[in-house]
Simulated assay, not measured.
Amino acid sequence: MKICFVGKGGSGKTTLAALFARHLIAGPAADHPAAPPLLAIDADINQHLAAALGAGEEEAVLLPALGDHLPEIKEYLRGDNPRISSAAAMVKTTPPGRGSRLLTIGGPNPIYDALVRDVGGVRLAVTGPFATEDLGVACYHSKVGAVELLLNHLVDGPGEYVVVDMTAGADSFASGLFTRFDATFLVCEPTLRSVGVYRQYVGYAREFGVAVHVVGNKIDDESDLEFLRGHVGDDLLTWIGRSSYVKAAERGRPAPIASLEPRNRAALELMRATVDAARKDWVTYTRQAVEFHLRNANAWANDRVGENLAAQVDPDFVLGPELLVR
């Protein structure tokens, strides 16, 4: 299952993404006897997920970046798909087809070998920071494009998880990336600015059938909950209260996830149950990938590549687990 965390900058989405990933792999539990296959991806322009998972500053800086290896990623995923003339002709929305190489969460594959590292017990890939040399010559979407390509080619199943920390606000709507998830958790503080981001995000998402689950954060008392309920209604799934556990971790004193306050741990478990109950729809997943690819082709990609990228679409291809056993 593919999961993303979105919300206003400073709302705590990176912290919650890290807590949720650590909760998923914590096991054992009665209904989760072993740690599941899991991949975390930092797709935020502010690269803080590694630190939230417990990496030191030097370790975080040395992590290899997806955005620095786009040519290699494209070449691998292209495989021998006859509809793609070259790796250079692939763009962030290029969908898979017959001959493309598909990914699973557990791998192994050369992309994971080169670009995924264990951080605090969580397998993590990062897009890489937006560097000074990028100013004026690149946009962050060129780096996040690696994430969209990976998710377009990834086949996941029950009990497997990809946890993606997205860039703040509604910036992900610049491509089809927001449709790549089985569950979208929008982290919302009890403030008007945070609720404003919720309204902006949910307005876009519902046009494409994307369900948004609001997770309240930094909740102090019942008045905070009443404020959120008044603004987000039934979209409020659960909430995280002010946490001495999180405060200690942010001050350099991390502890096992089992030490998290019971009420907050229960909220993470409800989030897991919500993800596990989501229905996979590979036909819609493939159709939306194609739809956004054609939009991007017509808007800019045909001119940039010098080809009609609609020809990359394999009309009879549907991504799904049955392709892994052929």
Rank of each mutant, 00 (worst) to 15 (best):
K92D: 14
G99L: 03
H293V: 10
A205N: 12
N109Q: 09
V163C: 06
V126H: 08
R206D: 11
R263E: 15
S172G: 12
P262D: 13
V215E: 04
P37I: 14
R279Y: 06
G196V: 05
A266C: 11
A183N: 01
E189G: 04
L38Q: 06
L49C: 05
D171M: 02
A21G: 03
L260E: 14
D235F: 10
M271A: 12
A88C: 02
R229H: 12
A249N: 00
V119H: 08
P36L: 07
E59C: 04
G176F: 11
E75P: 00
E322A: 11
G252D: 09
A30E: 15
V212Q: 05
V246C: 03
A55V: 00
Y112E: 06
L38C: 04
K92A: 15
R101H: 13
L309W: 14
A88L: 03
R326C: 10
A273E: 15
V212S: 00
Q47N: 13
A34R: 13
G67C: 04
V215F: 11
T127Y: 14
R98G: 00
G12L: 00
K74Y: 00
V147A: 04
V214T: 04
P96A: 01
I41Q: 11
G306A: 01
V144L: 13
Q288C: 12
N46W: 05
A18G: 14
Y285T: 06
E307L: 09
A277L: 02
A88V: 14
D42H: 09
L38Y: 06
L294T: 08
N298H: 15
R78Y: 02
V318Y: 05
V283N: 07
A29I: 09
A29G: 06
G79W: 01
V325W: 15
G145C: 02
I45N: 10
E226R: 15
R295E: 14
V61W: 09
V137E: 09
W282Y: 12
K92F: 10
D68S: 10
K2Q: 13
P108Y: 03
G67Y: 07
R251K: 09
H231K: 10
R251Q: 13
K218D: 01
Y198D: 03
L192S: 12
P254W: 08
F292T: 12
V126L: 10
D314L: 10
L324N: 00
A174C: 07
A50N: 01
D182A: 07
L102Y: 08
S142R: 14
H23Q: 14
H141C: 14
V137Y: 07
H231A: 09
H293Q: 08
G196N: 02
A248E: 14
V137L: 02
G107R: 09
I105S: 02
L270K: 10
A125M: 15
L154A: 01
H293C: 06
F181V: 06
L103F: 05
Y76M: 02
M166R: 07
G56T: 05
H23L: 03
P71C: 00
V155L: 00
R229F: 01
E72N: 02
A18C: 13
L135T: 09
I45Y: 04
G54C: 10
T191Q: 05
E72W: 07
L62V: 05
E58L: 11
P158V: 00
P96C: 02
G145A: 01
E148L: 12
